[in-house]
Amino acid sequence: MPRPIYAEINTANIKSNFEIIRGVNSGQKMWSVVKANAYGHGISNIWRHLNSTDGFALLDLNEALLLRKEGWTGKILLLEGFFEHTDLEIIDEHQLTFAVHSDWQIDALRNYHFANKVDVYLKVNSGMNRLGFTPFEIGNVLNKLRRIPYINSVTLMSHFANADTREGVIEPMMTIDNLHTPENVEHCLANSAALLWHRDTHRNWVRPGIILYGASPSGNWADIADTGLKPVMSLKSKIIAIQHLKKGDAVGYGGNFRATNNQTIGVVACGYADGYFRTSREGTPVLVDGVRTGLVGRVSMDMLTVDLTSCPSACINSDVELWGEHLPVDVVANAAGTIGYELLTALAPRVTVRVI
């Protein structure tokens, strides 16, 4: 019998989330972001359930080629562009759209003879200070790109550092609106947070990422609880052992938890080698047979332990939800000192994935 831990991917929920997001924007075209193997959900598991999207956005050429191999013939955007001159051959063959954020990339484009016209996303550094050209450079760079005969269109793209706050896009949008560029240049600006909370950023293309998977861009589940978005991944396991502690008995490595009274503890087949964070604190919520309880003791490589006081009927093989449809990943992540993005993308390869 295989170890009783698995991630369940609910395709009905990702379809529903996609339609909700379609309803939030104002008719803009949509890149569905599937970077990091679809935020840990598996590109192969989800792309067909998003095939009414206008395009897929990702980072890795191998993931782009996977989409092509599996039958997606539509648009694919490489969010960080290309990393080597030799990547252009693959980009040309598979007709990929890509970001340009550095001078060396422009030089590479000038020196490569494309067989097909290509669409380019010009990255504007509007305050994030990661990738992109400064606002003062954009006009000149845009002119350079437009003089390259193989380039079909140039779209301005930027990314917001603080779109999950009320005032977070004001300065970046002022920067973008003050650019000296032709009026007919399309914009792709809105990430998940901006799409939900800053309608003025929507422009021509939007780029939903984490909200497709039913988690919050702010890291706070309450911020999206009334949107209808639903978690797509549920991490599930079983109780594999039960321990009856006496007052003073310790649990786990280091013995940092000790029972203050007689206490029943459940051992769950899940640990940090499965992607569950070792930093998760005592009390991090867990569902056992649908009843909310919490961690006790340290998370180890293959197991963790939970307090069964609130679920006295729990037994060997009782169902456990570590996060998912009934326990949002953002809630668990907060208790672990991280964000839902990190838990979802940290799912370990050894965890079986079931698509429903």
Rank of each mutant, 00 (worst) to 15 (best):
V296D: 01
R278S: 13
M303E: 13
P182I: 07
I316L: 15
R281G: 04
G214N: 08
C270Y: 01
D302P: 05
D302N: 14
K230F: 01
Q263S: 10
D249S: 12
E325V: 06
V291I: 15
T181R: 13
N191P: 06
T201Q: 12
Q263F: 01
P208L: 13
K230C: 03
K247L: 04
S313N: 12
I210F: 06
G248I: 03
E282V: 00
L308C: 10
N261D: 09
N317I: 04
L308Q: 02
A273C: 10
L308W: 02
S318E: 03
E183M: 08
A273K: 13
H326M: 11
S237Y: 10
C188G: 08
L304N: 05
V291L: 07
R258K: 15
S310K: 11
R278M: 11
G254P: 04
H187K: 14
G254Q: 05
L322A: 03
P208C: 12
I210Q: 09
R292S: 09
A222D: 15
Y253D: 11
K236S: 05
V306E: 04
L212D: 07
N261Q: 15
L235K: 06
R203W: 11
P231A: 11
K246E: 12
P182R: 14
K236L: 15
K230T: 03
D274F: 02
W221Y: 15
N204V: 04
K236V: 10
L322M: 15
K230R: 15
D307L: 07
D307S: 14
R298D: 09
Y272A: 04
H180W: 02
L229Q: 01
H244C: 08
N262F: 09
L196N: 08
S300W: 03
G271S: 10
G271H: 03
L287C: 10
N204W: 06
D289N: 15
V296C: 08
H202Q: 10
E325F: 04
S300F: 01
N184H: 14
R207K: 11
K236D: 04
P231K: 07
W205F: 14
P182F: 04
E321F: 05
G209K: 08
L295K: 02
L322S: 02
D302H: 14
V291K: 14
L304M: 15
V206Q: 03
G266D: 04
M233V: 15
L189N: 10
H187P: 03
A193T: 12
A193S: 15
P182W: 06
S237R: 07
P182G: 10
R199A: 12
L287A: 07
S280H: 03
K247V: 05
G297T: 00
L308E: 02
A314S: 12
I242H: 02
S318R: 00
N204G: 08
G324P: 06
H202T: 09
N256H: 13
E321G: 07
G266R: 00
T227I: 13
K246T: 09
T309Y: 07
S280V: 00
T293P: 00
G266W: 00
G283T: 11
G290L: 13
S237G: 13
G275S: 09
C311Q: 09
N261M: 10
G266L: 04
Y253S: 14
A215P: 00
G271Q: 07
A259H: 03
D307P: 06
H198Y: 09
W323H: 15
P312I: 11
W221Q: 14
H202N: 10
W205C: 07
